[in-house]
C-alpha cells in the first residue's frame, strides 16, 4: 500500500492530483483547527484569516528572495506571534470570547491585506493578488503537480506525526480536561489561560503553514479567497469528521473536499439543466455544509469517527445485546 501510494502520483491524472493536493492542505488546516476546537474546546472563526496571513506572509518573505525552506518556518513563527497577540486578551476569559476575537481579527486582517495589496508601486497589478515564485530546492524544482503531491504528503505526514505525538503528552491531556470543565481543570493545577493560549498558538502556527503551502502550491495569493465562509467550512470539517480526533480531521477534510462532486453528481442524476445547475450548485453546497454541521452536532457530536467507532464496536461485540454497547463508551 505504501508502495502504491508512492507510485500513484506518477500515473494519476492531473485533475485528481490537484484535488488530492488541495485535500492534503485542507487536512493540515483541519488538523490545526481540530487541536484548538476538538481537543481544547475553543471555537475560532479566524481560520480563514490565518490562512490568509500565512499566504501573504509567504509572499512578503518571498519578495525578500528567501527560499521556500526558510519561508515556511518563518511564516510559522510570525503566525504564532500574531496568534499570541490575538488570543492573549480573549483566552484569559471564560466562555466563548475567542470566537468574537477571531471574528474581529478576520475582518481586521482582511482590511490590512487590502491595504497591503492596494498600496505600493505595482498597486494596479496587485489589486487582484500576488504571484509567488516556483519552489526551488536547488536540486529540483516543484514545477509539476505530482511533485507537489510528494512534497505536500511529506508535510502532511509531519503534521500528523506531530499531532499524534502531541495527543500523548501532558499538554493535550490538559486541553481535554479544560474542554470538559475549566474549573475542574484549574482545580487539578492546570494553568487554564496558559494552556488555552498554547492551543491557540500551536493551531495558528500550523494554520499559517497550511496557508503558506496553499499559496505556494497555487502560485498566487488573492484576498478574495479568504472569506468567513471558508472559516466556517473548516469548522464543518472538524465537526463532521469528529472533534477531538486526528482521524476525524482526515475524514472531515476528505468529506468536505469530495462533497461538491457528490452534489454535482446528484444534479446530473436528476438531469438538471445547465442554467439550473449554475444557479443552485454553489448555494446547495453551502446549505449542505450548514445542514450537515447542524445534524452532526445534534445527532452525532462525535462526527463520522463516532459513527465508525460505533460500527466497529458493534461488530466486535456482535452476538451480544445492545445494552452492553451503550455501556461501553470509549
Amino acid at each position: 500500500m505504501l508502495l502504491a501510494g508512492l507510485v500513484a502520483p506518477m500515473v494519476a491524472s492531473q485533475s485528481i492530483l490537484h484535488l488530492v493536493n488541495l485535500t492534503m492542505i485542507a487536512i493540515i488546516g483541519a488538523l490545526a483547527l481540530n487541536l484548538l476546537t476538538g481537543f481544547a474546546g475553543q471555537l475560532s472563526l479566524g481560520h480563514a484569516a490565518f490562512l490568509a496571513v500565512g499566504g501573504y506572509l509567504s509572499h512578503f518573505f518571498s519578495t525578500l528572495d528567501l527560499p521556500f525552506i526558510v519561508v515556511v518556518p518563518a511564516v510559522m513563527v510570525v503566525g504564532s506571534v500574531i496568534g499570541f497577540l490575538v488570543g492573549a486578551p480573549a483566552l484569559r476569559l471564560r466562555g466563548l470570547y475567542l470566537v468574537l476575537a477571531t471574528v474581529g481579527f478576520h475582518y481586521i486582517a482582511l482590511f490590512v491585506i487590502h491595504v497591503y495589496q492596494s498600496s505600493g508601486e505595482k498597486s494596479i497589478l496587485a489589486l487582484t493578488g500576488f504571484l509567488l515564485p516556483t519552489v526551488d530546492f536547488g536540486i529540483f524544482k516543484l514545477d509539476a503537480t505530482f511533485k507537489w503531491t510528494y512534497c505536500l504528503g511529506f508535510f502532511l505526514l509531519l503534521t500528523t506525526a506531530f499531532c499524534i505525538n502531541l495527543t500523548r503528552t501532558r499538554i493535550v491531556r490538559a486541553w481535554i480536561a479544560l474542554r470538559e470543565r475549566d474549573i475542574t481543570a484549574a482545580a487539578l493545577g492546570i494553568n487554564v489561560p496558559l494552556y488555552k493560549l498554547k492551543a491557540f498558538v500551536v493551531s495558528t502556527s500550523l494554520t499559517c503553514m497550511a496557508g503558506a503551502l496553499l499559496v505556494y502550491y497555487l502560485g498566487a495569493v488573492s484576498s478574495e479567497n479568504y472569506t468567513l465562509d471558508l472559516a466556517v467550512s473548516y469548522l464543518a470539517m472538524v465537526v463532521i469528521g469528529g472533534a477531538g480526533s486526528v482521524l476525524g480531521s482526515y475524514l472531515g477534510a476528505i468529506f468536505v473536499a469530495v462533497m461538491p462532486f457528490l452534489i454535482t453528481g446528484l444534479f446530473e442524476l436528476v438531469q438538471a439543466g445547465p442554467r439550473f445547475q449554475l444557479r443552485y450548485i454553489v448555494p446547495s453546497q453551502i446549505v449542505a455544509f450548514g445542514l450537515l454541521m447542524i445534524m452532526f452536532l445534534v445527532f452525532e457530536p462525535r462526527g463520522i469517527v463516532g459513527i465508525w467507532r460505533r460500527i466497529r464496536v458493534y461488530f466486535e461485540l456482535w452476538p451480544l445485546r445492545r445494552s452492553i454497547l451503550s455501556e461501553r463508551r470509549d
Binding site: 476546537t37 470566537v99 465562509d229 455544509f289 450548514g290 445542514l291 452536532l297
Partner: peptide, 17 residues
C-alpha cells in the same frame, strides 16, 4: 455551549444561501 454556537453558525450560512 460551543456546540450551540456552532449550530447558529451553520444556520447562518444556510439562511444566507
Amino acid at each position: 455551549v460551543f456546540a450551540a454556537v456552532l449550530v447558529t453558525i451553520g444556520l447562518g450560512i444556510i439562511l444566507r444561501a
